[in-house]
Amino acid sequence: MVIKIGPFFIQWLLTIFILLLLAVNIVPAWYDYQTKVAIKSETSSESSLAERYISRGDWPASKDNNHVINHYQQYLIKTDKTDIKTRLRPVSE
């Protein structure tokens, strides 16, 4: 069977369909990027649970649960001040 009627109409439809498919993928990707930018802190060691998890290479959410991203300020990491106090003196080589 060969389509002979309305090739321009088909082309328009397909163009819209392609743009829709691109949007389906690009919009959520852009949204994730914006989320990452929003939760980014000045230093990686003083950040939130979500930011640190992302810096490890994983996204901190399941399909149904974006809690630590949406409420990332509830999960701020406390700086470990004891790191400085208790640091070992270097061992001589």
Partner: peptide, 30 residues
Amino acid sequence: LSTVLLHITLILSANAYFYPTSLVGFLRAT
């Protein structure tokens, strides 16, 4: 192009469904 994009969408969707912590699983909440 539609077929390629449909395939890509399927693969990205399945990745988001099975592995939501993947960094390229951005379709997870859709």
